[in-house]
Design a protein around this nucleic acid. Structure first.
Length: 575
RNA sequence: GCCGAUGUAGCUCAGGGGUAGAGCAACGGUUUCGUAAACCGUAGGUCUCGGGUUCAAUUCCCGACAUCGGCUCCA
């Protein structure tokens, strides 16, 4: 345990102490440090409120001020069990009973408060200089939904007030960038109680969606060797039985009845693509076959899990399934990784790769094939000189995978791109190609997505750019702003001209002063404000003010369209 | 799904057992203005929905739905 974790864990003890002073009947459970601070779980009938957090904080401050030393005492398991029996702490007894005979058991105390724990504390409660309680939440005992729901108090602690303030400031900043808040303010997305977990893409949000969709389509179809398909959205139960979804995933699917048959709304594209592959005979010469599809998918996520655009019931992926020969794996993965890295660089995103390898407890197929596949994935990572970490045992049961994780400006991690090898599906669907020997062979399937779901990726972009999208993505790229009504005719000409250049332009002809119009455009985070006054009308020029507050020298209308169109070009085909 | 919180005008929010209030936005008018907020006026609400208690409920209680913070889940 590092020093910060010790501090935070100590702070959790102080919190537990404070809780026990106010609610002596509260039962103690566990209170570990976590990445952002610590928590402590209690079993108590009283429901903690935000006011309680304030009371607890001031009580904690007293305990800190008293500067009790943290003391450790080694005892036997039986002594621990007896001790917590006298204290009526059933969870602690259960924990003590779970510790194997002979292992060291220690009690840690400060002042009157005693807790069973492995240890890792600072010297005195007075060392806790800066702490704050953050929130209350429910949590199952031992993280198991079959167990009792406890009450968890989250908090954080730092070595200095400055560190704490910095943390709180970052949190406030994250709140300001929250895609749900910005999505509403900027008119990008909306939700309705009659479609929980499914976003409405409002006109400006739909531009984002469509622009990214087109971007990916051009990248894959024009350069990547993919073909696009559109499989049905609703399939007979028989397909889901074949794919295995019916057995493992039925409760997470939406079901549709028709006449006497059961249908399911597809939660993923793969089975449809397997059927497409089956429809034709495939030569080894025609592989890899790359099928791309952006159809909407539906997953019946439990209501409590839904959240903005990051956890939805309806979404689309930049999905593809690649059918290839085993000897093509390394080459294909290598090209795919290059593509992924190229895309993420275009969005200035920080990312890292993770290679998840076989879980010996949970896998199908031959160990030799797994070993070979894992080696192929790893050498593809190396060939692209990509930084990666190996995560043992985290592979899906059907094959190893590479995931890409984005770290945003606020140190939060987002799982995005994924590349998964699949040896199971070709078996289940009896997929085959005709080899050089004119016999049937099993292909390998690669599931891969680059953005992942458009919904989640757009949420990430909204927060990454804080709503100030780069020009090529901006829903409104330029707004024509007039100084007074007198410039209206010219303003319309400017807008029409720019639209001819494929730019997304709108006009502000409102009866406001220039400053107010600039302010409005600024709040809408529109990249370019095209200011027109008498001077501009006179000389047929446009004064451009950019979102960062800079003013460019006036440019002739005749040149403006081409100049802006070039600036607004997709990073795929920069001018 | 589970625990807790929240739901008041288009938005952000205040209020509170005697049928509601601000700012912004909208609308009308005045103003025609040079780079982040001109001025005056008007209109706008079944206080999420359904029950209950009460002489009276938007307010208290119960339930539903949605959202938020977590937990579980994410083959």
């Amino acid at each position: 345990m590092n020093e910060l974790d010790k501090l935070r864990h100590s702070c959790a003890h102080v919190l537990a102490d404070a809780v026990k002073r106010i609610w002596p009947e509260a039962k103690l459970t566990i209170g570990p440090p976590i990445e952002t601070g610590f928590y402590y779980d209690f079993d108590v009938d009283h429901a903690f409120s935000d006011e309680d957090l304030g009371k607890l904080e001031s009580l904690m401050a007293d305990i800190v001020k008293a500067n009790h030393p943290f003391l450790a005492r080694q005892i036997t398991r039986q002594e621990a069990i007896d001790f917590f029996k006298t204290r009526n702490e059933p969870y602690k007894i259960e924990l003590a009973e779970g510790i194997p005979e002979g292992e060291p058991i220690s009690l840690h105390s400060h002042g009157e408060f005693v807790d069973l724990c492995r240890g890792g504390h600072c010297q005195n409660t007075g060392d806790i200089k800066a702490f704050k309680l953050l929130s209350v939440a429910g949590a199952y005992w031992r993280g198991d939904a079959r167990n009792k729901m406890l009450q968890r108090i989250y908090g954080t602690a730092f070595f200095s007030k400055a560190d704490l303030d910095d943390f709180l400031k970052k949190r406030a900043e994250a709140e300001k960038r929250d895609h749900r808040k910005l999505g509403k303010e900027l008119g990008l997305i909306a939700f309705h109680p009659w479609a929980p977990g499914a976003a409405f893409w409002l006109p400006r949000g739909a531009v984002l969606y469509q622009t990214l969709s087109d971007f990916m389509r051009r990248l894959l179809l024009d350069e990547g060797g993919y073909v696009e398909v559109r499989a049905p959205l609703i399939f007979n139960q028989k397909l889901w039985e074949t794919s295995g979804h019916w057995q493992h995933y039925a409760k997470d699917m939406f079901h549709v009845a028709s006449e006497d048959d059961n249908f399911g709304l597809k939660p993923m594209n793969c089975p449809g693509h397997y059927l497409i592959f089956q429809m034709d005979l495939h030569s080894y010469r025609d592989l890899p076959l790359r099928l791309h599809e952006q159809s909407p998918l539906h997953r019946n996520e439990v209501s409590g899990a839904l959240s903005g655009l990051t956890r939805v019931r309806q979404f689309s992926q930049d999905d593809a399934h690649i059918f290839l020969r085993p000897d093509q794996i390394q080459q294909e993965i290598s090209e795919l990784l290059a593509l992924v890295a190229r895309v993420y660089k275009m969005f200035d995103l920080n990312y890292s790769f993770q290679l998840s390898t076989r879980n010996p407890e949970k896998f199908i197929g031959e160990i030799a094939a797994w070993t070979e596949a894992e080696a192929a994935l790893e050498s593809a990572l190396k060939a692209n000189q990509l930084e990666y970490t190996v995560v043992p045992n985290e592979a899906a049961f059907y094959g190893p995978k590479i995931d890409l994780q984005v770290t945003d400006a606020l140190d939060r991690k987002w799982q995005c791109a994924t590349i998964q090898l699949d040896y199971n599906a070709p078996e289940r669907f009896d997929l085959s190609y005709i080899g050089e020997d004119s016999k049937r062979h099993r292909p390998v399937v690669v599931h891969r997505a680059i953005f992942g779901s458009f919904e989640r990726f757009i949420a990430l972009l909204i927060e990454h750019y804080a709503g100030a999208f780069p020009l090529w993505l901006a829903p409104v790229q330029a707004r024509v702003v007039v100084v007074s009504e007198k410039q209206e005719t010219f303003a319309r000409q400017v807008a029409t001209d720019l639209k001819k250049h494929g730019l997304r332009v709108d006009l502000d002809l409102s009866n406001d002063k220039l400053g107010a119009k600039i302010r409005r455009a600024q709040l809408e985070k529109i990249p370019h404000m095209l200011v027109l006054g008498d001077k501009e009308v006179e000389s047929r020029t446009v004064s451009v003010r950019t979102r960062d507050g800079k003013q460019r020298p006036p440019i002739a209308l005749a040149e403006l369209g081409a100049a802006l169109a070039s600036e607004a070009a997709s990073p795929l085909h920069p001018h």
